[in-house]
């Protein structure tokens, strides 16, 4: 079988549709992950016993179980308890929650590197806990955690490809479908690979920027 450019042109619009879905899913679930992770980290810091145990449990669970299994689990078990959701929100939700647990670790790590003197200073200035968190601690946490968080967003983006297993039309799903319909696999999969590769470039660029800043 040889490479067929006209076939490439024919399937490109459908693959681009997959690109949009990939971007949508990545954005939605990373928003969930980044904000959820922050919330978990704060919860953990404020209520030490309960928060810590809760986060620990999720983290240990997600560290040991493949995302694919969690996706299948949610997809097949939710309808049994009467909750019927389309595949896309399920995919976004599961990826978001899994990565929220990972991100909370990163936030926690950056929170404990903030010197305690800074908190003392906030107390000495009579700042309320609310203001201390919102204006001092959270901005600092995010700033310090940014490179590691970006790495997790990149992993999340790469992992969106498995959502095709639930029928979400991400790029991988579209390539699979096009290939299946036309019995031509070379072009769709190769193109999908190349497009995924290109979609990595902005991440890698940002990461190298972070690295330069720290070096």
């Amino acid at each position: 079988m040889t490479w067929d450019w006209s076939f490439v042109l024919k399937i490109l619009p459908r693959l681009m549709e997959g690109v949009w879905y990939t971007i949508l899913v990545t954005l939605a679930s990373s928003t969930l992950a980044l904000s959820g992770g922050l919330a978990l980290a704060i919860l953990e810091s404020v209520s030490t016993t309960f928060g810590r145990a809760f986060v620990c449990f999720w983290l240990e669970l997600f560290r040991g179980v493949p995302t694919l299994v969690l996706l299948y689990f949610t997809f097949y078990v939710l309808p049994e308890v009467g909750i019927i959701l389309p595949a896309i929100p399920i995919g976004i939700g599961v990826l978001g929650i899994v990565y929220a647990a990972y991100c909370s670790e990163v936030y926690r790590g950056s929170l404990i590197t903030i010197p305690s003197e800074l908190r003392d200073a906030c107390v000495a200035l009579h700042l309320s806990p609310n203001v201390t968190w919102r204006r001092v601690l959270i901005p600092l946490m995010i700033k310090r955690a940014a490179p590691a968080l970006l790495n997790y967003v990149l992993s999340l983006f790469r992992e969106t490809a498995v959502l095709f297993a639930l029928g979400v039309p991400v790029l991988m799903g579209q390539a699979n479908e096009v290939g299946y319909e036309s019995f031509r696999y070379l072009e769709p999969y190769t193109l999908a690979g190349v497009i995924y590769l290109c979609m990595n470039l902005p991440f890698l660029y940002l990461l190298s920027r972070f690295k330069d800043k720290h070096a």
Binding site: V162, G179, Y185, T190, A192, G193, L197, N200
Partner: peptide, 23 residues
């Protein structure tokens, strides 16, 4: 290294299994 890591393992796997033998 970046070339291997960039597309996720699923994409690589499908490519190696379905597309590679066609070359």
């Amino acid at each position: 290294i970046e070339l291997i890591r960039a597309p996720s393992a699923v994409v690589l796997l499908f490519w190696a299994f379905y597309a590679l033998p066609l070359l």
